[in-house]
Design a protein around this nucleic acid. Sequence first.
RNA 1: GCACGGGUGGCAGAGCGGUCAAUUGCAAUGGACUGUAAAUCCAUCGACCUAUGGUCUACGAAGGUUCAAAUCCUUCCCCGUGCACCA
Length: 397
Amino acid sequence: MKVITDIQRIEEIFARGTVVDILPTKAELLKRLTSGERLRMYIGFDPTSTALHLGHAKNIMFAEELRQLGHEVIILFGDFTAQIGDPSDKAATRKQLTVEDVKKNVAGWVAQVKPLLNFDDKENPPLIKYNSEWLSKLSFTDVVNLASNFTVQQMLERDMFAKRLKENTPIHLHEFMYPLMQGYDSVAMDVDIEICGTDQTFNALAGRTLLKRMKNKDKFVIALNLIANPKTGELMSKSNGTGVFIDQPSNSLFGAVMSLPDPMLEPLFLNCTRISTTEKDSLMKEGPRQAKAHLAFDIVKRFHGEPAAKSAEEAFEKTFAKGGVPEDIQEIQLGADESLAEVLIKSGIVESKTEWRRLVLDGAVKNDDSKITDPNFTPTETVVLKVGKRRFVKIIK
RNA sequence: GCACGGGUGGCAGAGCGGUCAAUUGCAAUGGACUGUAAAUCCAUCGACCUAUGGUCUACGAAGGUUCAAAUCCUUCCCCGUGCACCA
């Protein structure tokens, strides 16, 4: 396996704003990357969640670029650590995943990231590993030995713990195990580099310590940014209800990008596309509306291909810019003794009769361009209804 | 084990006998406007009905007091903090 050492190409990979920190130093990492040595790196994922958004996507894109240089990339699923839940995620459930669950989630994960990561590269395929492979085999003695490498004070330095200590909110003892386990992953896989989100830096550094002590090896940590909503400061995540999830069909993916607040344009162009910075700058000059459409197009294209991106863009234009009706809309049959509201509830368009009534009274329901004002409206022929901006139904009579 | 503080709508978090279907913020939904499903402004945001009103269900669970309970009492479940040795 020949490793590419072109410094310019390497610098470009690092110039996309994704990398926010390199430990111990960037200079040392660049030295290794240009040495011609094939390095082994890993990036970890939580198999409890298959809700991948652009924040995950850009990390994978980054790893893929390093892989394309010829380095070995391991995708590590933390099936064992998932049982504990990372302290940084307070909503983390500590549910036990069955082997089947993990398999299913990983399969879903792989399907989603296929457009981002070249699994078909025979020469240098990305490897998939599970940390239960080694963590489940550790004895209590092993764990005690691992723990002896750290002090309580060191653990408490972690932002999350320091904060919780200050607020007098609980810190469970087992949460201290998390950095140990993640750290041991590095030892077990004997990696040269760990790629992680900035929220994982502490854990990654625990691995650096362990690798140094146990194998006298210097591991690099590449910390990647977390995409946040600039409006609320909230990170992209399912629990926050924010974020652009990548498992959606092309049309809604396009719309999801369009609905992002304007300030997110810049970081997303840099992190989630490979459009050059000069081109990005000229796109930005066209105004946020146009720039965002370009961004959406590029992202949809990456996941669904160019034709799908084109049709998604057209559908968006037609539906939202011109207020038209999309091509493929849900059709429901209206029975003789059913009310319109009942049928709409049954098909999940509206939640309840009260909601339906409210929507009608708010003027949210339209047939062509005429508002429907009577909640008891019953169509006498087949009609297309527009409920709000995004809900469309064809009522078959 | 003991002491104290909690469990309220998707989340955060008020309320502490009636004016509470429950303040407020976030999220969400709708409207206006627009450059877009952005921003801003306004409205809505438990369900049902013969619908500017009414009924029912809901503030951890089960009972109770009261004309009236999210609010008081009892029991139970759950969560958090502190105490514990140095007496």
